[in-house]
């Protein structure tokens, strides 16, 4: 078994126009920077991207908007991106907004083989329009379908050659569920280690979910809101 690839370009060698891609990250935190840059270089178009946000105007997934590679975004919050606003208002970009917890759970359901779930989130709001609703234990709930993808792209802090992954702090966010919900999951890691080096009790994503892994390089790790106190 060899899941290690040389770099991001090799990891997405078979990515095609029209693909559905899940991308880990919350804002610019925990973004798979190498893989986003590789998709940008490859120039594939008409992508559907499932990610909590769409980067900023010139960072993260935002760079794929600049090159008009994205046809549709499935997200929970898409502020802080002027090009996104412009393309959306011009009708060039389709957007499906999901409540953040619903987005996370739809991805989890997709990876866990579930046909969906009933949630109280969004009941009685415009999110409920066109969805089945039921009263369960006295509460109105709406039915949400699972989400799956052709590719999941994530960044982990450490990963071994089999694909076991460990994340660091809040860079984890959506990545663990995304790894389970795609046909091909690619992980870029800040530290690629040998099998056996990770503490089995500390693994966040077991290797079965990861198809390709590589050592990432040149991490920029931009910060959206640099808030500090006096030292």
């Amino acid at each position: 078994m060899n899941k290690v690839v040389a770099n991001a370009d090799e990891a997405i060698r078979d990515l095609q126009d029209g693909a559905v891609i899940m991308s880990g990250g919350f804002g610019l935190c925990g973004n798979p920077e190498n893989l986003i840059r590789a998709i940008h270089r490859k120039g594939v178009k008409n992508l559907t991207i499932i990610s909590n946000n769409c980067g900023t105007t010139d960072k993260g997934l935002g760079i794929l908007l600049q090159t008009r590679q994205v046809r549709k975004m499935i997200s929970s919050y898409v502020g802080e991106n002027k090009e996104f606003e412009r393309q959306f208002l011009a009708g060039e970009l389709e957007v499906e907004l999901n409540p953040q917890g619903t987005l996370a759970e739809r991805i989890r359901a997709g990876g866990a083989g579930l046909g969906g779930f009933f949630t109280p989130t969004g009941a009685g709001t415009q999110i409920a329009q066109g969805k089945e609703s039921r009263v369960i234990e006295g509460r109105e709930m709406i039915f949400e379908k699972p989400l799956k993808a052709d590719y999941a792209i994530v960044r982990a802090w450490k990963g071994d050659r089999w694909g076991n992954l460990v994340f660091r702090k809040t860079a984890r966010n959506f990545s663990p569920m995304m790894c389970t919900a795609a046909r091909i999951t690619v992980a870029e890691v800040e530290h690629l280690v040998e099998v056996g080096e990770l503490d089995p009790d500390q693994v966040h994503v077991p290797s079965v979910y990861v198809n390709r892994i590589f050592q990432g390089t040149s991490y920029e790790k931009p910060i959206e809101k640099r808030t500090v106190r006096k030292g």
């Binding site: 919350f26 809101k225 808030t227 030292g231």
Partner: peptide, 21 residues
């Protein structure tokens, strides 16, 4: 916790408002 000092800033550690914490 509180906001970090300049020396403590960690891009892997933000709150839901995307502020460093």
């Amino acid at each position: 916790g509180s906001y970090p000092t300049e020396a403590e800033i960690d891009p892997d550690l933000i709150n839901a408002g995307k502020e460093t914490v």
